[in-house]
Design a protein around this nucleic acid. Sequence first.
DNA 1: ACCTTACATTAAGCCTGCCTTACTAACCCG
DNA 2: CGGGTTAGTAAGGCAGGCTTAATGTAAGGT
Lengths: 151, 151
Amino acid sequence: MTENQEPELARFNTIAMLGQAYSLLGFQIVEGVVGAGHPIKPSHSAVFAQIKPEGSRLTELAAGANITPQSMVEIVDELEALGYVTRRPDPKDRRAKLITLTVRGQAAVAAGESTITGIEEDIVEILGTEGAAQLRAMLIKILSAPPTRDR
Amino acid sequence: MTENQEPELARFNTIAMLGQAYSLLGFQIVEGVVGAGHPIKPSHSAVFAQIKPEGSRLTELAAGANITPQSMVEIVDELEALGYVTRRPDPKDRRAKLITLTVRGQAAVAAGESTITGIEEDIVEILGTEGAAQLRAMLIKILSAPPTRDR
DNA sequence: ACCTTACATTAAGCCTGCCTTACTAACCCG
DNA sequence: CGGGTTAGTAAGGCAGGCTTAATGTAAGGT
């Protein structure tokens, strides 16, 4: 598949966005954006999409996903119960907690990648190798473009 | 904008799909897929997206939108109350009713088209005229492609 | 003519995703 | 230190869609 010389976007952000884009186009995405074998719900990908390797704060994740912190609490609760993320106190701010991916969480990200890869294979069948690569490039370009008046 | 030599897809289906696709990419779609000035909810576009000029049956719309007839009843109820569609008995089957767009409903479809046009202008800014046209063509090609194993 | 199936609809109850309102603990600034 | 602000959380609500179940009416096969 296309190699990873793509700009800006976090690793899973690309996965999540492409996943949603592709899913909208009718490709089956099992259990949200992450591949099979994980009881992940679509809403969960909001976390995978943004979480930083060092860990992210809940409010940070909420802001990035454009939902309220309260809603994010729920998502993180679920993910924590499933063992995909952990909450630890942030050493720099005792109010805050750092949410980090567990090993299992990282595996989910990897599974997501291979799901996308599978879908991209289907797209190749429709658009051809070149077309598929172009589509992907365009989607990514749009996703990382600076906002215009309507965005 | 690009002219209408596009294959297969019903007029509004293209609008709805592109609208969703573009919205996913971060472009603002006011009031669902249909443009401003109409109190249309996102769920309503499931009707606009599929309704045939001669009128469609409720079960047909439900199946096409992948929702239950019960849920579709609710959507059509709302749309009818707003004056966008009407229900008339189907002459061919007295059990059935034909749901058709009113003039106002057709206006909503037209508004949807101009919303898409506006969005496509933004995309032109990112991808260039040619790129935008290519993207649109690719999306439509995918949407009208026969299902592969995962679709 | 009878039985089965299909269409449209209503109603109740549920789940999910997200919201608002409200609160506590910790931080930061003057 | 005191007052405002920020991080996280709890509780309750609302909308969209689901399931299950029931009803009336019409169609269609045998």
